[in-house]
């Protein structure tokens, strides 16, 4: 402990501060863009997957295959796939962009499944009523089903997003500057692992604590009680 106190003056420099802030910002960007893209595309995939009829057979099969494939792979493998996929396709991307694509794939597949779970949780008689009143599939989903499914979707979606912040740490394996990578760099600069990773731990905690608070507010706003 005394060692950490001795290290602190050397650690608390303007340069390290900017470096950590940059890493924090990248973690935040990976998390937010991943969740937003994953949420939007995942929602679309879930809606496609729940559609009936022969005309939707191909998009439905694609949505199913995409969700099942990326949901079953470890996050690190998906990131490696994105990395090597980009090199094979000779697409010129930064490491950050590659990590972002990989993380979006992971978030999309997981959130698609969470949304699908919410959609199928709504009583089938709601579909019957809507169909009998001449609602098309998309209108039924948007006006009747999803407003009832949010209560089922939001809690696991928030829980996933909090876990997802931690998944962004895998981006460090590609050499993307984010919090875990910053911890690694700081230790190689000679700071103790306790101080470097301790700082990283605090920043991860602050980030997920703030997002958890936002999540709780969102849950309360749609009428999900905070505690029983």
């Amino acid at each position: 402990m005394a060692g950490i106190w001795q290290e602190l003056p050397r650690f608390l420099t303007w340069y390290n501060g900017i470096f950590l802030l940059n890493a924090l910002l990248n973690t935040l960007l990976l998390s937010i863009i991943g969740c937003l893209a994953g949420g939007t595309i995942g929602l679309s995939l879930a809606i496609i997957r729940c559609a009936r009829g022969r005309a939707m057979a191909v998009p439905r099969a694609f949505a199913w295959a995409f969700t099942e494939f990326f949901r079953r792979l470890p996050p690190l493998v998906v990131l490696m796939l994105a990395f090597f996929g980009a090199s094979v396709a000779r697409v010129d991307l930064t490491l950050f962009q590659v990590a972002l694509i990989g993380l979006c794939l992971i978030a999309t597949a997981s959130l698609a499944e969470i949304v699908r779970g919410g959609i199928v949780s709504v009583h089938p008689n709601q579909w019957d009523s809507a169909a009998a009143l001449n609602f098309g599939y998309l209108r039924c989903v948007l006006t009747v089903i999803l407003p009832q499914a949010w209560r089922v979707i939001i809690p696991p979606a928030i829980s996933f997003m909090l876990l997802f912040i931690k998944d962004t740490a895998f981006a460090s394996q590609l050499g993307t500057l984010e919090l875990t990578y910053a911890g690694k760099v700081l230790t190689t600069k000679g700071f103790s692992a306790a101080l470097s990773y301790g700082t990283v731990l605090l920043l991860y905690f602050a980030l997920s604590y703030a997002l958890a608070g936002l999540g709780r507010r969102l849950e309360t706003s749609i009428g999900i009680p905070a505690d029983r």
Partner: peptide
């Protein structure tokens, strides 16, 4: 379905809408 309507045994009202909106939704949308 524009000429026929059905009332179900279990009512099947849209749970996310008020009484008034349940009645208005089809003519409106």
């Amino acid at each position: 379905r524009g000429r026929c309507a059905i009332v179900f045994q279990q009512y099947n009202l849209f749970q996310n809408m008020t009484v008034l909106n349940n009645v208005m939704v089809a003519p409106l949308k």
